[in-house]
C-alpha cells in the first residue's frame, strides 16, 4: 500500500518536484509495479549472499599518476549559468 504522502516523500528524496496530478498517477503506477515485484517473496533466499556484481572484481586501484584533464573552459561552457570562473547557482546561504 503506497499513499500520496509516501510518494511526496519519495519525490523529495529523488529531487523531483511533482504536482498533485503526478503524485496521484505515480502512486497508482508504483503500486502496480511494487505489487508485481512482491513475487520475489516466493523465493527462499535463506543464507544466500546478495550478489553485488558479476565480474568478481573487488576494489580496483591504480597508481596515482596525474593524467590529462578536460580543460576548465570546456567544462564551464556546458553550464547553463556561469561567469568566467564559476558555475552560478541561486544563493544558498541567507543573511
Amino acid at each position: 500500500m503506497i499513499t500520496d504522502d509516501n510518494v511526496r516523500h519519495l519525490a523529495k528524496l529523488a529531487s523531483l518536484t511533482l504536482d498533485a496530478a503526478a503524485v496521484s498517477r505515480m502512486r497508482g503506477e508504483l503500486e502496480a509495479i511494487v505489487g508485481y515485484v512482491e513475487q520475489l517473496s516466493q523465493v527462499d533466499t535463506t543464507g544466500v549472499e546478495p550478489l553485488t556484481n558479476v565480474s568478481g572484481v573487488v576494489n580496483v586501484t591504480r597508481t596515482d599518476v596525474p593524467g590529462p584533464l578536460i580543460p576548465t573552459p570546456t567544462v564551464l561552457a556546458l553550464a547553463p549559468a556561469r561567469n568566467e570562473v564559476a558555475i552560478l547557482v541561486p544563493k544558498v546561504v541567507e543573511r
Binding site: V37, L40, S41, V43, T45, V48, E49, P50, L51, V54
Partner: peptide
C-alpha cells in the same frame, strides 16, 4: 525487503 532480496535472487539466477 526489495533491494537485498533482489540481489539474493540474482545470485540464484546466476
Amino acid at each position: 525487503a526489495y533491494y537485498k532480496k533482489a540481489q539474493q535472487v540474482r545470485r540464484k539466477i546466476c
